[in-house]
Design a binder for these strands. Structure first.
Lengths: 243, 243
DNA sequence: TTCTTGCAAAATGTATACAACCGGTGTTCA
DNA sequence: TGAACACCGGTTGTATACATTTTGCAAGAA
């Protein structure tokens, strides 16, 4: 065991199992055999069990009453509620930030990100810098989370650890689809409005905007599930969703 | 290892460590030595580490960058935000229940609990059945949580696993204080209003009521911290709060 | 056929051994 | 005198052995 391996087997286990689940290599509902997984990942059962316990807390696997874990099955309602929950929590973060005030330096960061996001949307839908928008969008949301206290940030991060509840869930490179691209213009308008609401100390408005902003993800979800199911494969996290 | 001990050492470890922390036997900020704890609880390090990892997820202990865990220090703001978060999440549960509708049987359960809660408040402040109210109150809130989907219920349960964020945090037997007793009449009125709002499908009202209801806990907290610090000892969870 | 019963293989939960690492202390050298 | 360094106790992270339980399956009886 080398120096750089310290506390790293657990990390490998966590990422490895998560990847196996999200990629769909292990079907939803199937039991996770510790020995098989440990062998597959080339680690022992101890760090693997730690990873499984953590994934249980994250909600990606269920604990079986008689022992062990199984890949959780997500219904459409589960996904919708996870997205709703993200909206509620981000909304709370923004409301409290607006009510309590934010240091100017942080507002400056947000403004800079807004400007950068705008530049990626300059051109037409076809030529816009989609990849760069995705990165900046993730950074923007993380800055928003940073406005909240540790207690609230923890919950946001837990909820968004579900792959389909993250702000980037439908914005991966694989999911570069015209319908999703078009939604970015409205999303960016909401970004600006959210920052403005915080600056104006309009807590309720900030909260409402964050909730509505998360609804974009729900729209994208419903577009995939109801109108163009061929896209399911493009959004990896959705392999977990049944019917 | 006997039959009934299966998967029970982990439970004992979890409850044991949590108790040591909440009771204040281990000071906030101090490091948790695995070997010492394991010996103290009479178990091996393996289930103990599982318990510590879980407490880390719950937010009761922090992970130390160089390895291991320490009892988390909670500021007053941490506690306030945890209570606020409970209000937000319970509010979301109620709003969604109101918007989506609730099966009559469940509403019946809630009404029965309301009636029982009322009976405990019949007499004067001095003779009311405080202990019974506490139990019924906990049951009532759990029923409310049951109205939400699994995804949301999970988060509620995680947040309320912090001892001072639970609906019963300031209603333990030890915390039987006139100021807290008096707040129960208003609380019960809010209970009735919340159920009514759900029945009337008034989602926004239900959400607001749940948030305001959680504020009672904040009032009690501030009463303890600002007006009668001698009560800190009566509310065990507050031994974790610094300054 | 279908349900019950017994058994064996596999899986989990726990204990323990081992290796790497962190922090502090004493020593040594400039 | 002070700083660098080597070492050592104590601690965590990992691997593995072991005991008990779960479970799938086959055989037998109703």
């Amino acid at each position: 065991m080398e120096k750089s391996d310290r506390a790293q087997q657990s990390q490998r286990a966590l990422m490895g199992v998560r990847d196996l689940i999200v990629s769909g290599e292990i079907r939803a509902g199937s039991r996770l055999s510790e020995v098989a997984l440990a062998e597959k990942l080339g680690i022992s059962r101890t760090p693997l069990r730690a990873a499984l316990a953590r994934l249980g807390q994250e909600g990606l696997v269920d604990t079986i009453p008689s022992g062990g874990y199984a890949v959780r099955r997500f219904t459409r309602e589960d996904v919708i509620d996870a997205i709703e929950l993200r909206g509620v929590l981000e909304g709370t973060a923004l409301r409290l930030a607006a009510e309590r005030g934010v240091a100017p330096a942080r507002m400056g960061d947000l403004h800079r990100l807004l400007v950068e996001l705008d530049t990626t949307l300059r051109g037409t839908v076809e030529v816009m810098d989609f990849d760069r928008y995705v990165d900046l969008n993730a950074a923007f949301h993380e800055r928003l989370w940073g406005l909240a206290s540790q207690t609230i940030r923890r919950e946001i991060e837990r909820v968004t650890s579900l792959p389909f509840a993250s702000p980037s869930a439908f914005l991966d490179k694989q999911a570069d689809v015209p319908a999703f691209r078009r939604s970015l213009y409205g999303a960016q308008a909401q970004h600006r409005a959210m920052v403005n609401a915080i600056e104006m100390r309009e807590g309720a408005r900030a909260e409402s905007l964050a909730r509505e902003h998360a609804r974009l993800a729900r729209q994208n979800l419903e577009h995939v599930l109801d109108e163009d199911r061929s896209l399911i494969r493009r959004v990896p996290a959705l392999s977990l969703v049944m019917g």
